[in-house]
Simulated assay, not measured.
Amino acid sequence: MKRLALLLILLTGTLGVPPALAQDAGADARRAAEDLEAASVLLDSAEDAADRVAALTDTIRAYEDGLAAMREGLRAAAIRETELTRKLQAQEQEISQLLGVLTAMSGRASPGALVHPQGPLGAARSGMLVAAVTPGLAQRAADLRADLEEVQALRKLQQNAAQRLAEGLQGVQQARTELSQAIADRTDLPQRFTEDPIRTAILISATETLQGFADGLSQIPAEEDQGGPPMPDIHALKGTLSLPVRGVVLRRAGDPDAAGVARPGIVLAARPGALVTTPTAATIRYNGPLLDYGLVTILEPSPDVLFVLAGLDVVYGQIGEVLPAGSPVGLMPAPTNASTESEGGGAGRSETLYIEVREGDAPDDPLLWFATDKG
């Protein structure tokens, strides 16, 4: 596909100028490009909606990784440009003096300049001194010239990267749209039970907290089991599960927020519009608006275990469906337009996902379940 090939070029090419600034980001970009190419092959060979969902999920993740690598490279370039600019400004007087010396040396000396106050011996000493200093001055001028050329290259890199980021964002947005359609077309997922909207509505109206809703939901049995696969014991995977979204931990369980409220879950900072997936096979127990948490998805990976994901902008799937591991369950809130997301290529994450794990009727620390750096 043309948009995939375009991103392959910009991922592997943009970060290579200058190569010393973005070596790690460039390696990440190349890996993302390889993943993107593999996803495009799967997408071209997809025979049904389920295959398209899997391929598009991989495509979006590859886009996100590639764009993150581009932003990191651009951030490194911006930092380097700032350092060089400050360095050059601080040495502005020295540069002027150096240019004056080089200009004088490059011209033809007048006869008077050859007369030294201390006579021929002083003139000889001065000549020897100038001869000794000249190579150092020339090297200093070459270093400064290299710094100026690097600043110019960095500015050109940043100008080109802004447009290419926008192109990449358009590509990932198209993939998100196609994913939504593929999920709507998917009909072959196992269905563990059918939602009882009346009972769910009563539960929502009777609870005032997320904890209360999750507790009440866990007490509603899936009475209309429709022959879905048996749910595994998730405890064997405890501590090894991938986070539902790529991000960093902002708050741990029990840490108070800005209002002084402590919650039993963790808060992740994620990129706007990032894809959220289920870390393991799970049944959708609820997805939709809830209290002031925005859109919420509650997954049941194992009997008496619930994963609560709150703060989504889009949710996928139907209540009662059994999702394979890595299936998309929603998207993080996105900016109103692509240019907003692309501004400040190295900008930090700006959206948050609240994750709560409940075992039985009690919360458990999510960092005990997910594989993170714990930092």
Score class of each variant (00 low, 15 high):
Leu4Cys: 14
Thr12Asn: 07
Pro18Gly: 02
Pro19Leu: 04
Leu21Ser: 08
Asp24Glu: 09
Ala25Ile: 00
Gly26Val: 01
Ala27Trp: 06
Asp28Ile: 08
Ala32Asp: 05
Ala33Leu: 09
Ser45Phe: 09
Asp48Ala: 05
Thr57Pro: 10
Thr59Gly: 06
Tyr63Lys: 11
Glu64Ala: 08
Leu67Ile: 08
Glu81Gln: 15
Arg86Gln: 12
Leu88Gln: 14
Gln91Phe: 00
Gln91Gly: 01
Glu94Val: 14
Ser96Gly: 04
Ser106Thr: 14
Ser106Tyr: 12
Gly112Cys: 00
Leu121Phe: 01
Gly122Lys: 13
Ser126Gly: 01
Gly127Pro: 00
Val130Thr: 07
Ala131Asn: 13
Ala132Tyr: 12
Thr134Cys: 04
Leu137Asn: 01
Gln139Lys: 15
Ala141Trp: 02
Asp143Val: 15
Leu144Ala: 03
Arg145Tyr: 03
Glu150Thr: 14
Glu150Met: 11
Arg155Ser: 03
Gly168Glu: 05
Gln173Gly: 06
Ala175Trp: 03
Ala175Val: 09
Leu179Ile: 14
Ser180Phe: 03
Gln181Arg: 14
Ala184Arg: 15
Arg186Lys: 10
Thr187Lys: 12
Thr187Glu: 11
Glu208Asn: 15
Thr209Pro: 06
Asp215Gln: 10
Leu217Ser: 06
Pro221Leu: 11
Glu224Asn: 15
Gly239Tyr: 03
Pro244Glu: 08
Val248His: 05
Arg251Phe: 07
Ala253Arg: 12
Gly254Gln: 08
Val261His: 11
Gly265Pro: 00
Gly265Lys: 14
Gly265Val: 02
Val267Glu: 04
Val267Pro: 02
Leu268Met: 12
Leu275Trp: 11
Thr280Met: 05
Ile284Cys: 00
Asn287Trp: 01
Tyr316Asp: 07
Tyr316Val: 06
Pro324Gly: 02
Gly330Ser: 11
Pro335Ile: 03
Asn337Pro: 00
Ser339Leu: 12
Glu341Phe: 01
Ser342Leu: 00
Ser342Phe: 00
Ala347Arg: 09
Glu351Met: 14
Thr352Pro: 07
Thr352Val: 04
Tyr354Gly: 07
Tyr354Cys: 05
Arg358Ile: 15
Arg358Thr: 07
